[in-house]
Amino acid sequence: MPEKNTYPVQLVQPDGHRVLDRVHAPLVADIDGARLRAMYTDMVVARRIDTEATALQRQGQLGLWPPLLGQEAAQIGSAHALAPDDYVFCSYREAGVAYCRGVAPEDLTRLWRGAAHSCWDPDTVKMTNPAIVVGSQGLHATGYAYAAHLEGAEIATIAYFGDGATSQGDIAEALGFAASWSAPVVFFCQNNHWAISAPVRVQSATPIARRALGYGIPGVQVDGNDALAVLAVTRQALRRARAGGGPSFIEAITYRMGPHTTADDPTRYRTAAELEIWQHRDPIDRLKRLLEREGLWDSAFEATVAERADAVAARLRNATLTMPDPEPLALFDHVYATPHRLIDEERREYAAYLEGAGR
């Protein structure tokens, strides 16, 4: 991976034309029409998941939801670069990545409904659950990557975070350790321009990818609304990690077209004109235009994609609405991997309280 680039890597323009890039295009030369269609399908499904979950929150069925609207290419492009044994450490917004890793739609809202401490079993999909503590996953990913390296595992880990998280000490510490010990971790920053109401310009006076250079880590900017370019640079970084080359940093330039979470009102801090500019750069529209230009788009495919997206959304909605409330004593499950005397004592005390309260 080059140590710096003067502009974001781009392989597909907003109008669907391919870009001649002799460095990065070969990295995705194997992506044929079927795989382009698969990426497009996953992006549409990811948006449909997001739309349905947002609607469920507005209807009082979820306590909160962190929308990913506008970031589908960054998530799906990078997820398609991962090997089954690679491990994903996410923030709270990567529902699209989770879907690609095999998380069932029925499991995506369990945490957000308040019915469980987590959404899915991380070991089954090699992906952690949503991390609410901003930036903490950078340390977790680095530690896991280094431990895997010591054990001789030829895998990579990837840590997803936003531009706001780069101002957190946890990310700085993770970058420092990863560089010093050559941990096979990819730091994937989705620069969506807004950390809640704080614009990216107050996070860094220089492109965020350049921060990595100060740690001795190669950094690259990529057009985060170009799924093919994201796939290329993520593949490059993952291969470097698996081959023992150490960490890499990717800054995917994208845009959060929705609110930070459903508790946020973005109209209070950004203009309608800014949003309109990025709507014209919609990542799903861009990949659709590429498919059209290359003769890969027809009404039958469009109908198939819509049917799949609707089916996934229906599964998510039905599971959310029929999700049972947890048993009160389940609060103590999975706190420790092995039995713990303090937890056992607290469980007994809480059980006695519930019995005395007639519950």
Score class of each variant (00 low, 15 high):
residue 33 G to V: 11
residue 33 G to M: 09
residue 33 G to Q: 09
residue 34 A to R: 13
residue 36 L to N: 06
residue 36 L to P: 07
residue 36 L to D: 01
residue 36 L to E: 05
residue 37 R to H: 05
residue 37 R to M: 10
residue 37 R to N: 12
residue 37 R to F: 10
residue 37 R to Q: 13
residue 38 A to S: 14
residue 38 A to V: 11
residue 39 M to V: 12
residue 40 Y to V: 08
residue 40 Y to D: 09
residue 40 Y to C: 11
residue 41 T to C: 15
residue 41 T to D: 13
residue 42 D to K: 02
residue 42 D to F: 02
residue 42 D to G: 12
residue 43 M to F: 11
residue 44 V to G: 09
residue 47 R to G: 10
residue 48 R to Y: 08
residue 49 I to F: 12
residue 49 I to H: 08
residue 49 I to A: 05
residue 49 I to D: 02
residue 50 D to Y: 11
residue 50 D to W: 04
residue 52 E to D: 10
residue 52 E to V: 14
residue 54 T to E: 05
residue 54 T to D: 08
residue 55 A to N: 14
residue 55 A to Y: 06
residue 55 A to Q: 10
residue 55 A to P: 07
residue 56 L to E: 09
residue 57 Q to H: 12
residue 57 Q to N: 14
residue 57 Q to I: 04
residue 57 Q to S: 14
residue 58 R to P: 14
residue 59 Q to S: 15
residue 59 Q to N: 13
residue 59 Q to V: 06
residue 60 G to I: 09
residue 60 G to T: 09
residue 60 G to F: 11
residue 61 Q to N: 15
residue 62 L to R: 04
residue 62 L to N: 06
residue 62 L to H: 08
residue 65 W to F: 12
residue 65 W to T: 06
residue 65 W to Y: 14
residue 66 P to F: 01
residue 66 P to Q: 05
residue 67 P to A: 04
residue 68 L to P: 08
residue 68 L to I: 12
residue 69 L to S: 15
residue 70 G to S: 14
residue 70 G to E: 07
residue 70 G to M: 07
residue 71 Q to K: 09
residue 72 E to C: 14
residue 73 A to P: 15
residue 73 A to Y: 06
residue 73 A to E: 06
residue 75 Q to S: 10
residue 77 G to V: 01
residue 77 G to K: 00
residue 78 S to T: 05
residue 78 S to N: 08
residue 79 A to W: 01
residue 80 H to N: 11
residue 80 H to C: 13
residue 81 A to S: 14
residue 81 A to E: 04
residue 82 L to E: 03
residue 84 P to H: 06
residue 84 P to W: 03
residue 85 D to L: 14
residue 85 D to E: 13
residue 85 D to W: 08
residue 85 D to P: 08
residue 86 D to F: 03
residue 86 D to Q: 11
residue 87 Y to C: 14
residue 87 Y to M: 13
residue 88 V to F: 02
residue 89 F to C: 07
residue 89 F to W: 01
residue 90 C to L: 12
residue 91 S to F: 05
residue 91 S to R: 00
residue 92 Y to W: 02
residue 93 R to E: 11
residue 94 E to T: 04
residue 94 E to F: 00
residue 94 E to V: 04
residue 95 A to C: 10
residue 95 A to M: 10
residue 96 G to Q: 02
residue 96 G to R: 00
residue 96 G to K: 04
residue 101 R to T: 00
residue 102 G to E: 02
residue 103 V to S: 02
residue 103 V to E: 00
residue 103 V to C: 05
residue 104 A to Y: 01
residue 105 P to G: 02
residue 105 P to D: 00
residue 106 E to C: 09
residue 107 D to S: 13
residue 108 L to Q: 08
residue 109 T to Q: 01
residue 110 R to A: 02
residue 110 R to H: 07
residue 111 L to D: 00
residue 111 L to M: 07
residue 112 W to Q: 08
residue 112 W to I: 03
residue 113 R to G: 15
residue 113 R to H: 10
residue 113 R to V: 03
residue 114 G to H: 03
residue 114 G to F: 01
residue 114 G to V: 04
residue 115 A to S: 15
residue 116 A to Y: 06
residue 116 A to K: 10
residue 116 A to V: 01
residue 117 H to G: 11
residue 118 S to E: 04
residue 118 S to G: 10
residue 118 S to M: 06
residue 118 S to L: 11
residue 118 S to F: 10
residue 118 S to N: 11
residue 119 C to S: 09
residue 119 C to L: 06
residue 121 D to Y: 05
residue 121 D to K: 12
residue 124 T to P: 08
residue 126 K to M: 09
residue 127 M to E: 02
residue 127 M to L: 10
residue 128 T to A: 11
residue 128 T to I: 04
residue 128 T to W: 03
residue 128 T to D: 12
